[in-house]
């Protein structure tokens, strides 16, 4: 059996076993659909409502991707500024920490009051949740270049731009990617939380609104169907960034080597 097949087979079997167990439990214990729907019912509901749920899924994905892109840009730019100016970092890092620890659940309704466009408000909420790991990891990364390499660059009279491009950025890459893996999942959580707490306009409703709607109308199978799509999205994001990390760092960084710990 090839290595790849082996790697995928075990988790898949476990997953299938769990789902089968769930189905059995619901049937044997006669649990009503409005309390805990069986996986088969969830699958049916998903298929029946796929068109409209897919539309909402796309809205959530757009917000997530947008927030992540902004978190990357913001996190990297701010980290770069911090790396260039320790004074700036000392002044502003506490602000970043405050943003990080403020519960988005409490802040989202306020943001929705102050920001005109609902989409902008949701992006802002998801951004607040997602940008900190990228910022903090990239700050560390930009300082992580080997001291001897830094001496070498000094010796050859490298310009600050050359140093940034050829030394600091590549050295920071593993740290940035680690932050990215965390922020990928967080931006989804942020997008969903913001929409759940603050709601969305009737037109562009993401999966969170659909879950709420189903909840209010006691359509529990639909809730689970939407939830399934959310979970799949999270898994997809995780897999995507794992692959990205492998591609970027695989050839050279120890974090991607196959050697046992």
């Amino acid at each position: 059996m090839t290595g790849a097949l082996q790697r995928w087979l075990l988790p898949t079997l476990v997953l299938l076993a769990l789902i089968a167990g769930w189905e059995l439990l619901v049937r044997l214990a006669n649990i009503p659909a409005y309390t805990l729907p069986a996986p088969s019912l969830i699958g049916q509901t998903l298929a029946a409502n796929f068109g409209s749920l897919a539309g909402s899924w796309w809205v959530t994905v757009k917000i997530t991707a947008g927030a992540l892109a902004l978190a990357c840009a913001g996190g990297v730019l701010i980290a770069g500024a911090f790396a260039l100016s320790p004074t700036l970092e000392r002044a502003l890092f506490p602000v970043a920490v405050v943003l990080q620890v403020t519960p988005i659940v409490a802040v989202a309704p306020l943001i929705l009051i102050y920001v005109e466009s609902t989409t902008a408000a949701l992006l802002l909420c998801a951004w607040i949740v997602a940008f900190f790991p990228i910022l903090s990891n990239t700050v560390v990364g930009l300082r992580a270049a080997d001291a001897n390499l830094r001496d070498l660059f000094r010796l050859y009279r490298a310009s600050p731009w050359q140093r940034l491009r050829l030394l600091s950025l590549p050295a920071a890459l593993p740290y940035f990617v680690a932050g990215l893996k965390i922020s990928g999942g967080l931006s989804l959580i942020g997008a969903v939380t913001a929409e759940m707490v603050a709601g969305a306009a009737g037109r562009e409703t993401g999966l969170a609104s659909r879950i709420l709607e189903a909840s209010f109308r006691t359509e529990t199978p639909k809730m689970f169907a939407a939830l399934t799509l959310l979970v799949l999205t999270g898994v997809l994001i995780f897999a995507l960034f794992n692959a990205l990390s492998g591609w970027l760092l695989g050839p050279w960084h120890s974090s991607e080597s196959d050697r046992p710990l």
Partner: peptide, 24 residues
Amino acid sequence: FVFQEPTLMPWASVFDNVWLPLRL
């Protein structure tokens, strides 16, 4: 300068590492 550690850029090929002083 040759350091006690090879001090090579791990993300670059041997060629790119040796090219570095000329590149700078």
